[in-house]
């Protein structure tokens, strides 16, 4: 599965557009991590636990999008966009969407 955030695939022709596919995940923070983050809030700096948490969450959202694209027979997803929104206090939604296409 080729994933790209530009509208074309260099050197390849798009045979068929299959419409939009999407994936999302809502993640809450871990209490233990929250305490550590609270300490880090005093001295400042990178919160590695959160960075990893969000990376994992994005991977999961992407995975869901890929599954959806595979189900409709696409072999590439183009024009992919990521978006983040906070749903409730302490939880964030990670959303990824793109256009599923068939490449020659």
């Amino acid at each position: 599965m080729l994933i790209s955030n530009i509208e074309i695939v260099p050197g390849k022709k798009i045979v068929k557009h299959l419409g939009m596919v999407q994936g999302n995940t809502v993640r809450a923070k871990h209490a233990g991590k929250d305490i550590l983050a609270g300490l880090k809030n005093i001295v400042g700096g990178e919160l590695k636990a959160y960075t990893e948490l969000l990376t994992e969450a994005r991977e999961e959202a992407t995975q869901r999008m890929v599954q959806q694209a595979e189900a409709i027979g696409a072999n590439a997803i183009i024009n992919v966009r990521f978006s983040t929104s906070s749903v409730a206090a302490g939880a964030a939604e990670l959303f990824v969407y793109g256009t599923a296409v068939v490449l020659e």
Binding site: S4, N41, G44, L47, Y50, L54
Partner: peptide, 18 residues
């Protein structure tokens, strides 16, 4: 016109000090 494409990303969570 012909190149391999790959989605790359980087993220960071950073906190302000007290």
């Amino acid at each position: 016109s012909s190149a391999r494409t790959e989605l790359v990303s980087g993220n960071v969570v950073i906190s302000i000090d007290y």
